[in-house]
Structures are given as structure tokens and as C-alpha cells.
Amino acid sequence: MRVIDRDEVARLLDHARGIALVRAAMIALAQGHSSQLLRGILDLGGGDAFGVMPGALDGAGFGAKIVSVFPAAAATGRSHQGVIVLFDRDSGAPACVVDAGEVTAIRTACASAVATDALARADATTLAILGSGEQAWHHALALRHVRPLSRIALWGRDGGKARELAERVSAELGVPTRVFDRVRDATRDADIVCTVTAASEPILAFDDVAAGTHVNAVGSSRAGPVEIDPRFVSRARFIPDHREGVLAQGAEFLRAKQLGLASDDDVGPDIGRVLAGTAAGRRDAREVTVYKSLGSIVQDLACAAWLRRAVAEN
């Protein structure tokens, strides 16, 4: 059984490859060529959690991601740490163990890029990122593959950290990046908004975005922390990564339902159906669209299976 560590994942799995793998995995999930159970989450208190995500994907195998989520750890390392265990479909034997932190960092941003390609306006070029951690960097890296970014607006609670990230993005990606002190100033002229924070209460209001904006809501991956205004659920075209999961564990939807602002009918079809062309995504140029990302194990399994093959070939 091969162990594929963080450095090997980073060396082999780039964002362009990740986008292709995630796109295929989400279509497979929507078409019944894969399966996944609702994630099991153990609340450890203080915002920390332990999660288990089991699933199977045709052509990849089956297995689970076992991960800890410690938001405070992001200040000195990474908030998501763990392993993906992939089993061989033919023999039932464990085939490889992969560093889950690095895969999660890459595939989460790639999933947002896939959704952006499907849901954002074709002429979208301006990006706002709310957050200044690992996911903010990876989202800048990934989204440039699906839209020609002309500028990036950045907001983060830690102004110094946000400025450091802005300098890095400008220098390494060649995209002019500016830090804003207020969320609304960062988002009001953006075609695409990505929320990648550890916020427990909404940081993005519905009125903070213009008509025609696409939002990737990424930071909250379980019931509890609410990162965006619950009004987005009913007022926008609200597309989940996996509808069953968002109905049960999507914090913004659950908050909106509790407040009487939305019902199950306001949650649209799986992104995989939109990608496959069997369901509508954006319906007009002025519609606000939202991709609600909880994270799907089939994305991790697709990446792990590809990495297993790539390592064998090298």
C-alpha cells in the first residue's frame, strides 16, 4: 500500500488537472456512477470538528476521507488535516493513503472553478475573495483557468495577512490585487465572489453583490457556521454540490429554512446535472447565482485514484 504525502500531492496534482477530475466526478455523482453517504461529523467544541466521508466512484474505487477541521490551526499551518484511504474495487484491498490536507486545498478550489465556469457570466473577469488563508490562494490559482481575470479584490479579517496575500497574487499570478477594509467595497464591482472564511455568522449580505454576480460559498462545510446571508437561498439561483447533503447539512440553507426564508424547493439541482446539461444553471445575465460547496468525497476519490496512477507511472 502506497503512502502519498503532501509534497508528492503538490508536485503531481495541479489545478488544471484537478478541475478536469472534479468536473468528471460531479457528473458521475449526478448520473449515478458514484455514491456517497452524508458525512459523519463529531463536534469537538470550540469550532473544532472531526469528520468521516465515505463513498465510491466508478473507475476509481471506494474509500473514505478522515479529517480534522481546526480553524485556529490555519494561523500556523492548515485548518484541514487528515488522510484519504482508497481501496481497490477489484480486490477490496487498501490501495493507497493520501494526504487529505493538500488534496482538499486543491480540489476545493477546483470545484469552485468548475462551478464558476458553469454558472458565472461568460464575460466575468473581476474576482473578489473574502478570506486570506490557504483557500484564498488556491481559489486565485484555480479560477484563472476558467475566466481571464483582470483584477482581484481581497478582504480578510487580518489586514496584514490580506496584504501579504495580495502582494503574492499580484507578483506570482500577474493579476492586480487590492485589499479592501469592508466586504461591500470588495464585492460591489465583482463578477465572481468567493467566500473562504471560518466565519460563524454571515459576512456577505445579499445587498453586497450586484445583479449578475456569481458566488462560491465555500467556508462553511457543515451545519452550524453560516458564512453568507441566508437570503441568498431564495433570492439567488442556489446550486449545491450535492443536493442531499446541502438539504441535510448546508448551514446557510438550514438557517434560511429555520427563519422561514426558504424551503427545500429553493435548493436547485446538483452541479453535476448542470455540468451534464440535464438541468439549468444561470438563466439570465442579471441573475445572482450561488454554488454551495460542502465538499464531496467523490472529488477526493477521483484525485486519489489519479495520484495512485501517476505515482505508479513515475
Rank of each mutant, 00 (worst) to 15 (best):
A28L: 01
H33N: 13
Q258H: 15
D208W: 11
T125Q: 13
R243V: 08
R168M: 03
G18F: 07
D300C: 03
A72P: 07
G156V: 01
G212W: 04
S112Q: 03
V218P: 00
C110T: 12
T195S: 11
V311L: 07
F180I: 01
C110F: 02
V193G: 05
A262L: 11
L13H: 06
I66P: 04
G219W: 02
A162R: 11
G131C: 07
R157D: 00
D284V: 04
V175H: 00
P225H: 09
V9R: 02
R163D: 14
G55Q: 01
D43M: 14
G63M: 06
T126S: 15
D191Y: 10
S112M: 07
S220C: 08
L86G: 11
L13F: 05
H214I: 02
I152T: 07
P202N: 13
A124H: 06
D185M: 04
G212N: 10
V246Y: 06
H242Q: 05
A60I: 05
T76G: 12
D191T: 11
D270W: 02
L130V: 09
G250D: 08
R78P: 00
R235Y: 03
A280C: 07
I4V: 13
T116K: 02
L127K: 06
D208K: 05
N216V: 12
T213A: 15
R2C: 07
